[in-house]
Design a protein around this nucleic acid. Structure first.
Lengths: 211, 211, 211, 211
DNA sequence: CATGAATGAGTGTTCATTCAT
DNA sequence: AATGAATGAACACTCATTCAT
């Protein structure tokens, strides 16, 4: 990004038409791949099926991605970024549990701007085997934790009398556990009524957050 | 053992030598498959690699399991059973958070009698695509929830002044979320110090359990 | 051919270049399969051997046929069609036996436009086990019978009673043909009523054995 | 068979108990193999299925036959012998067509003492590929021809020109039998001179087509 | 004599990847 | 830029054959 324009065009970072097209093609491929991965898994989805879903030939995909694995990695990276943005959105909210619930609700409705549950699970599993994915996961988790941290700091307005002053880190981790655990729950039991668990969730988050 | 009756006991379950050997072979295969599945995933592990790990020829495995899928299902079934037993063990404990921590500690040390994290994740992901696995998961979840239920009932000794009397179900779900979320956490961040989160976890479980 | 419209003809059946190539590939595969089936049988011929004979990779064949069985069925269908056409050719002939002899001569010389003997036998055998092949055989037999029927109708001209003393050997051979042909018939059409053909059979055997 | 007893037992050719048992085992295997071959074909039937049908272990079969192919060859040899005996039975009959019909009727009912149709076809097909089987077929055909020869000689009694108007269908069927039977003949005896059978064939077709 | 566990080469089939067009 | 035909090394699975018991 830094160090000058890659192509000698007027202006600093204006993409050429070709670059814009290439970017659009990449998006098409990634959208198709995401759909196929959700439906059949990373291993189960074939390049041919992704190509068909993207409406292009298998060969063309190799102009934009060097391998299937590269597509997987890019999908994972994007999903992690989406997850992080989703956490960030919660930060401004004054009613945390309601915001969490609302976020999960959108997520469960298949909002493509959020990480899909099956991909979340499969990515986590793959991360325990593939070093590259594992590193990406740890990095994303650190960032997410930092986001939650600043959120806690902002939210630590007047809160009184916690039974014990605990390590912030621990409470952060447990909040994350709660949310990811809920994610799995909703995959494995799609019929859970989110409204019904909201009060209990509120209680827990109150506890974690402080008062 | 040799030269006499093959079933010298009046009881019902004395296995013949052949049956014992067959059972041992099945165990060898399952142990090898578990290891390969952990290392490479359900789809990534080939029958050849499992056979090699088990120290036998590929063809021989088909004497004990009709297909690779049957092995996968058996692995999943056992892992689910182990998960359930692990929950049960916690029930008798007087110090719940400590027991949870202890359980997770054993689990993280790779105790083969507990469900492996990567398998847990991959099983959950696969369950969202494969109907048979999905059904097994839902069934196991119901049983686990029932176990937790009875545990709650037993533990509902004198507890006073909850801010709001909430639905039991919701609290059960959230406890499960917390634990499963912690499972994922430990896969994705193996360096988390369990002792450091114990106090906060205790706080949450107290909240969920009642007082 | 190049540079212009891909379908320059007003007619309906002008194939594109790609379609023509696909058709040619299918023919190459079928020709190779036919040869391999003749040499080694339906079950004895492997996809690898067919691919090698066709001068292509095994994987490529699956672009044109979904399975080995589909190739077998196509080969059988074509052979049945050829058989039927061969019967039809005879119809116009004024000298039937000469035409039959001529037809068999071409057939024995390996004319690939006629059904190969070994395939004929193996198809008949397989038809007694495989329902799909069995149905194809019965259907083809019905059509052939209908063709022969119309031939009879047209050919029922005046016939005079030759009574030439012929070589014994020839009559022996034909008796054997009759019996073995009847064997095939009864496999392919198990519902034939033997009583109903007895008089005609008697006539023929009298002719063969007799004065 | 000649040259003295193989084991130093009293008497010339009296089989020992062991030999008798071995012969019985061979029969069990052959009977099971015949059934399996009929149901699934030479290639489709596995040694395991034959062993199960015979009620013995796969390994034991190798004590009596060196290979699966040896079983196939023995089955074929026996079937050819049965065919020949069947022809012989016809010889004494005063009413040939009735005897043929009767023979085919028994055959179709699955008389295990006669060659099974599917085996007949498959054997004929296999004989065009396997030199050993081909030679066996040619040898058996020669013998059969010789049997028919003597039969002709004996049966050349006075025959009168019946000229009954018969069912068309029956004549159609027999024409088809004749042609298909000829097809088999030419595969099993490629040296047959078509010209030499033309006159007799003409006679038969005239009979079939004619008034 | 008899078993059946064990082998390993072979089967039909799939699929990531390449490349001539 | 784009195609899709082509490859070939997997894959899951089968089976004739062997051999320790």
């Amino acid at each position: 990004m830094s160090g000058g324009a890659r192509r000698p065009v007027a202006g600093a970072a204006a993409p050429t038409k070709a670059e814009a097209r290439a970017a659009a093609q990449r998006e098409r491929i990634l959208a198709a791949a995401r759909q196929c991965f959700i439906e059949r898994g990373f291993h189960g989805a074939s390049m041919a099926s992704i190509a068909q879903t993207a409406g292009m030939s298998p060969g063309l995909m190799y102009r934009y991605f060097p391998s299937k694995n590269a597509i997987v990695l890019e999908i994972i990276a994007r999903q992690l970024e989406h997850s992080r943005l989703r956490i960030r959105e919660l930060r401004g909210s004054s009613d945390l549990p309601a915001a969490i619930i609302q976020s999960f609700r959108k997520w469960r409705e298949g909002d493509p701007a959020t990480m899909h549950g099956a991909l979340f699970l499969e990515t986590s599993a793959e991360g325990s085997r593939d070093a590259q994915i594992g590193a990406a996961l740890r990095s994303a988790d650190q960032q997410t934790r930092a986001d939650l941290q600043s959120w806690f700091d902002a939210d630590a307005r007047k809160r009184t009398g916690q039974r014990v002053e605990q390590e912030r880190e621990a409470r952060l981790i447990l909040l994350q556990c709660l949310m990811e655990g809920l994610a799995i729950r909703l995959i494995r039991e799609p019929d859970i009524e989110l409204e019904e668990i909201e009060p209990a969730l509120r209680q827990l988050t109150d506890q974690l957050l402080g008062s």
